[in-house]
Each structure stands twice: as C-alpha cells, then as structure tokens.
Amino acid sequence: MKARLIVNPNLCTGCRTCELACSFTHMVGGKPGLSRIYPLDGGFKDLYVPVVCLQCEDPACAKSCLVDAITRNPETGAMVLDEQKCVRCMACVAACPFGCSLFDRINNLVVKCDLCDGDPACAHFCPTKALEYKPIEEHILKSTG
C-alpha cells in the first residue's frame, strides 16, 4: 500500500462534488444518494467531513464476511467487495464501525469504496484538495501502520 486517500476536513467546503463524482463513476445515472462518499456535517460552523471508507488495517467488514467476499487489493490497498461472491447477508453493513459498507436498495447490492482501482474520482474532482490521493513515504507508513 503505497498511496492513501487523504481526507482533510479543514479544506472541505461541503460542495458535494465528490459525491457526484463517485455516483457517476460507480452508478448508472449518477444519483447522489448512491454515492460511497458522504460529506457530512462536522458539528461546527463551516465544517464538513467527507466520510469515506478508511481501508482499515484490521477491517471489521472482511472479518464479518462469512463467504470471504471482501479482500484487500494488494496493488491499491483497498478492501474490495466481490459482487459475484456477496450473498447480501448485511453482516459487513452492520459491522463496519464507520458505516462505510453501504447497501444499495435500488440495485440490491452491497457497495463500498474501492479507491476506483487506484485512481479515485472523488480526489480528482475535489476543487479544494480536501481529498487527495497521494503516495506516502515508506517511513511514515511504517510508523503509522
């Protein structure tokens, strides 16, 4: 895992461009409600937090998946859900402590952020660089895990 999607709420204006970019990338028609990233209210004035899958080191989604449908992509480091294997038991949706494993009721799919195979559309479109996908130096990766 050499690059990370870095979220900087300080720079987020809550414009929801990331949400649109995500919806258009992953879903037909680009409905904002079907996005995998949510800029939510941070609880203070002019403070928004883009909530997106954190690609945890010890992910509850993969641990709770009883059919091993969620695995880490070794190239991007993202936890990727195999739609063909998923049996919609909703274990990962209930188990994720950050609520980033989502259920799409319209298409009957469980979806989560897969970092767009190493080129996240949300980071591309973020006008203020609150979302950035950039490589991380080895020594920082080692110290933070």
């Binding site: 709420p9 949510y38 403070l47 937090v49 994720c96 609520g99 259920f103």
Partner: peptide, 29 residues
C-alpha cells in the same frame, strides 16, 4: 466467532457515519 466488538452493532451505518463525521469534526475544530 468473528471477534467483532459488541458496540459496533448498537447503531446502524448511517449513525456510524454521522458519529465519525462529528468526531473528525471535533478534531479539526
């Protein structure tokens, strides 16, 4: 059997996201 902490199941995914946003918001503040 899967060692998921009990607390994770107390709220649903929407509340989890809201809680994460509030926590990260507090740190940013």
């Amino acid at each position: 059997h899967r060692e998921i902490p009990e607390d994770y199941f107390k709220i649903n995914d929407l509340s989890h996201r809201r809680e994460l946003a509030l926590k990260m918001g507090q740190i940013t503040q």
